[in-house]
Amino acid sequence: MDRMNRFFGDNLTCFRGGRFVFAGLSFAVEEGGALVLRGPNGSGKSSLLRMMAGLLPPSAGALAWDDGRIDEEPEAHHERFHYVGHADAVKPVLTVAENVEFWARLRTPEPDTRAALEAFGIDRLADVPGRFLSAGQKRRVNLARVLAAPVRLWLLDEPATALDADAVRAVEAAIAAHRARGGMVVASTHQALGLDGGDVLDLADFQGEDLDID
């Protein structure tokens, strides 16, 4: 049963600050699959990713991995995915290698930090403290964290932000390799991120009607 690996959401609704951000949204990602989230600002791309991570409970509907709802076993769910949000979580006084290694160590006893840094071309920065990094380099450190401890699902919120063309290609290559191994990716993006054969979910299609309060 477990090898099936299907992550899906059913009839999800996000109600925040007195309005429906989106409503009646369903999705499914299978082994090796990718899902690209599109939509204008405020359409709920980040909210949906946070919901998938279990940070934000859906106002209605449910998220499940195979047969188990994710909110029933949060720690088992955390085991399965990496979440890359807007902030890069790079500590200014820790070196690049230390930053990546700390996160990986919480998941595996012997992380392969070196290879993860090489994949994004920051292996030469391994001993540089985080405070000297540019925005794009910090983003790559954050993405290297994802590679250093392999999991099945990647949740990426605007992964290409602040990255140059080479780095975007490195991200695309990493995603392709991850999917080739049977991994799954959900990414929100404004830019063109080449995900071959990925499904596209346009959140503009699920805009909820406003609730009449009076």
Partner: peptide
């Protein structure tokens, strides 16, 4: 909290 580490920390398979 400010640099995003807490968000990631919350999502680790660590209680």
């Amino acid at each position: 909290y400010e640099d995003g580490s807490l968000e990631i920390l919350v999502l680790q398979p660590v209680s």
